[in-house]
């Protein structure tokens, strides 16, 4: 769906995006992760043809951008750097203007489409007050509605849950997952790890303009090969596991032993047999946060 080769954008001497090779596949919920200023927004803008690349190519929906913008963009819904609307007009009126200014979409079905989309993003009840009087969350929903209006094949969203309350975040997350199940590919750029972790199937991490990680989320969060044994009998465990024990942790979760052991079941049996009281025993998994931080080290 999105494929870039050596995509680069330089502003004078500063290289904002450096040799990016993105690969977003059909059906993905792709999490594009990076700190503020890492080049996320510039990349998104290059994909949408707003910013012209210094070198490299970007392919969206199989066609080169920005050359094929006229074919590609009607099938793409986007929200870039927060929503924007004409403040003195109502939400409905804003959507009507957006719909009318571009190609596709019969005029006769416009009203129905707008009503349906507003319903979908949870603004079905909204009255005719101007957008200027909207809350931040309502604006965010309106921006999303504007992106969804054309029933796009690809959604490119930049920080879509910004300014929403927990209930709103949950609703939007459910909506995106539902859209994804219906066949929409979602490209989600965010600096919030939790959001990416809960939504995405694939993750790309951007640091200082370079793509440092790109892999399926499941792979990134794979087991570390260690098992965490929560037990009050720390000393007993230590003597028993001499050789495979790597670390003893004392923190708020209570004391636990980190053991390199490929077979957690056998370990458990051994411990219990030796009289070590085990309150919990879990295979240790990698945290996305650690992966990101590690990969982002300069």
């Amino acid at each position: 769906m999105i494929r870039t080769h050596g995509l680069t954008k330089a502003y004078g001497a500063i290289t904002a995006v450096d040799g990016l090779d993105l690969d977003v596949r059909e059906g993905d919920v792709y999490g594009f992760l990076g700190a503020n200023g890492s080049g996320k927004t510039t990349t998104v803008r290059m994909l949408l043809g707003l910013v012209l690349a210094t070198s490299g190519t970007a392919e969206v929906l199989g066609e080169e951008m920005p050359k094929a913008a006229r074919h590609v963009l009607p099938q793409v819904g986007a929200m870039v750097e927060g929503p924007a609307a004409y403040d003195h007009l109502s939400g409905r009126r804003n959507l009507a203007l957006v719909d009318a200014s571009g190609p596709g979409g019969a005029r006769s079905s416009r009203k129905a489409r707008i009503a349906e989309t507003l319903e979908r993003v949870g603004l079905g009840h909204v009255d005719d007050r101007p957008v200027g009087a909207y809350s931040l969350g309502m604006r965010q929903r309106l921006g999303l509605a504007s992106a969804l209006l054309r029933r796009p094949r690809l959604l490119v969203l930049d920080e879509p849950t910004n300014g929403l309350d927990p209930q709103g975040i949950h609703e939007i997350r459910e909506l995106l997952l539902e859209l994804n199940r219906e066949g929409t590919t979602v490209f989600l750029s965010s600096h919030l790890l939790a959001e990416i972790e809960q939504l995405c199937t694939r993750v790309g991490v951007l640091a200082r303009g370079r793509l440092v990680v790109q892999a399926p989320l499941a792979e990134l969060r794979g087991p570390t090969g260690r098992v965490a044994v929560h037990t009050p009998d720390v000393e007993l465990g230590r003597s028993l596991l001499d050789g495979t024990l790597e670390e003893v942790v004392h923190d708020d979760d209570g004391p636990r032993l980190l053991v390199r052991e490929p077979d957690p079941a056998a370990l458990n049996a051994r411990l219990v047999a030796a009289g070590v009281r085990v309150t919990a025993l879990v295979p240790e998994r990698r945290h996305l946060e650690d992966v990101v931080l590690e990969a982002s080290q300069p």
Binding site: L52, G62, E63, K67, A68, R70, H71
Partner: peptide, 15 residues
């Protein structure tokens, strides 16, 4: 996907 747009024949650069 349809005809190639005109600009791919004559490369229109900013310059």
């Amino acid at each position: 996907m349809g005809d190639p747009p005109l600009c791919s024949v004559f490369e229109v650069t900013p310059f």
